[in-house]
């Protein structure tokens, strides 16, 4: 089927205009995402400057091994989605669909690992407001660290979750040959989104897991 003309919405003159508009819309959306996370990073910075010791201590409570594996998983998944897009651009279909499924699976495993992290933190009593059993001098301000930790990783995981669903939909549409070497805008935009999720994590990982272990 001629996907190109079928996908042209009436308000656009031609496919190029539609593609440009969609891409610009996605980039604008990504700019808002940067600000969503920007607030949290700003809050993190302010609190950490006030309580460097408590933040370092809080950071040491996180699971660096899992965090590192999660980072590797996300980076791999980003590579997979890029390969999938490349395959579609070259006219491929099956490989691309499987690569997308792989990306989604990696995203899902990221979420599962995070679930385990949260659970072990719950058992350790590290969740302020729900179960917080830390004692000692740093216990108070360390809660600030954990509030931000859960909020940032939770909000990021929400993005991962949305991304997984999006990628599965894209995998299905790729499998059904909705895309071609001429028309693949939705897939490209989904990949962009997934890269953003990945990039945000690249900031989260050192701030949460690595920072207190340096000194």
């Amino acid at each position: 089927m001629s996907t190109e003309s079928a996908m042209l919405a009436q308000q656009f003159d031609d496919a190029a205009q539609q593609r440009e508009a969609s891409a610009l819309g996605m980039w604008t959306f990504l700019a808002t995402e940067a600000l969503f996370f920007g607030v949290l990073f700003a809050g993190y910075t302010v609190c950490r400057v006030r309580f460097p010791a408590a933040f370092a201590a809080g950071s040491r409570h996180t699971d660096m091994l899992l965090g590192t594996i999660e980072t590797a998983v996300l980076l791999t998944s980003s590579c997979a989605v890029a390969l999938a897009l490349r395959d579609v651009q070259l006219g491929g279909r099956r490989v691309a669909a499987w690569l997308l499924v792989l990306t989604a699976a990696l995203g899902l495993s990221f979420l599962v690992m995070h679930g385990f992290e949260y659970y072990s933190e719950y058992r350790e009593g590290l969740i302020p407001g729900i179960r917080y059993t830390q004692q000692g001098p740093l216990a108070g301000p360390m809660q600030l660290f954990f509030c931000l930790y859960y909020f940032i990783t939770g909000f990021h995981s929400l993005h991962v979750g949305i991304g997984v669903i999006l990628l599965l939909v894209m995998a299905r549409r790729t499998w059904r040959a909705r895309f071609s070497a001429q028309y693949y805008t939705p897939l490209e935009l989904s990949a962009l989104y997934w890269h953003l999720v990945d990039i945000v994590w690249i900031f989260v990982y050192p701030l949460i897991y690595l920072v207190g272990r340096a000194g």
């Binding site: 308000q11 656009f12 205009q17 440009e20 508009a21 610009l24 604008t28």
Partner: peptide, 8 residues
């Protein structure tokens, strides 16, 4: 609005 102004 941004996209419309840019590309339409």
């Amino acid at each position: 609005f941004i996209v419309t102004t840019h590309s339409m």
